[in-house]
Amino acid sequence: APPPANRSTSESSGSSLIPEKSLKFVDDGHQVTDSLLAYLTDNPDFLVIGIVGAQGAGKSTLLNHLCRGRPTSTTNLFRVQGFEKQMLSEHCTTGINVWVSPERVIYLDCQPLLSASVLDRTIQIDKKHSAEFNTAENTMEMHSLQHLAFFYNICHHVILIQDWFADSNVLRLLQTAEMLKPSSPAKTCESDEGSNQIVEHFPVLNFVQNKAQMNDFSPHQEKKMRDFYGRVFKDSQLHPSQPFLEILGEKKDAKKSVNLYILPDFDLEGPTNVGNRPFSPEIKYKTSVDAMRRAILSQSRRPLTIVKQTERTWFQFAKDSWENIKNSSFFLEYSRLLWSNKSQDL
């Protein structure tokens, strides 16, 4: 849809323009595109949610449900793996896609982390990115890290979706990206001599256990998962739990609990769907996603930068962040380490 010429600058969500479908935010050439800018306003009250996960974990599907509240079977905002792609084990999202909702929530959908399909494509197309980080699989990994670090800079919330509990490599990747994330570009221009305190933004991390089986809904299992994530991210600067709950007058024990949302296996016709289950997966999925959206939208937001931002300044900030990440020497250094592993020979 071509962006209309008279873009409304009104801050009320009603008069803002909403893209019909998700737009490209970062294209497969690794460049930020400006297509979103036409839909952004000077509204300072917005929320950025990014979703990451492995291939086929259900990122785009979950986003579609989060965006609209109900799945629209005909037009998906974010393209999901259809039958054909599933059969060929091919990924669907390349780069980063974006959609902004009437509630002024900016949803970001990322290409799968550490995806064999993405790697396979670069191998077949050959040498598209391989010069950047020596080998194709290194480039794959470095791009995943860059996407994550990018999200850490520009998102209020990052959702990690997994379809099994749990891939230690993905958890590790998340923390490696945390380590590599360069200082946010907004901070450096803001830093004054007076305060030596460096405030680096890190998003709230939300875990989603997708395709959960009946067992995963037991309190015992749920606690086990929460405890595990809590331990793994104990030393991390990402916020796996929401520390603002106490201010909002919630229960104290809820304060420390990890943001974990369990979504049932969304299988309508599978062989196990015999109707004698205690819940219908489809209904459960919707209610779970609704609860999740409410939880995320109601949480107070950590400011991304010291300066208050509007949607449009955020966009510029995101662009700067992406350039900053692409130019960061940290990633190059890290990739050299990956490379040196392999070149080590007797």
């Binding site: 086929g56 550490l114 995806s115 099994w164 392999k342």
Partner: peptide, 12 residues
């Protein structure tokens, strides 16, 4: 592997 994607960590 528990799901239906290739785990690239095995390459390294």
């Amino acid at each position: 592997h528990p799901n239906h994607t290739i785990d690239l960590s095995y390459v390294q």
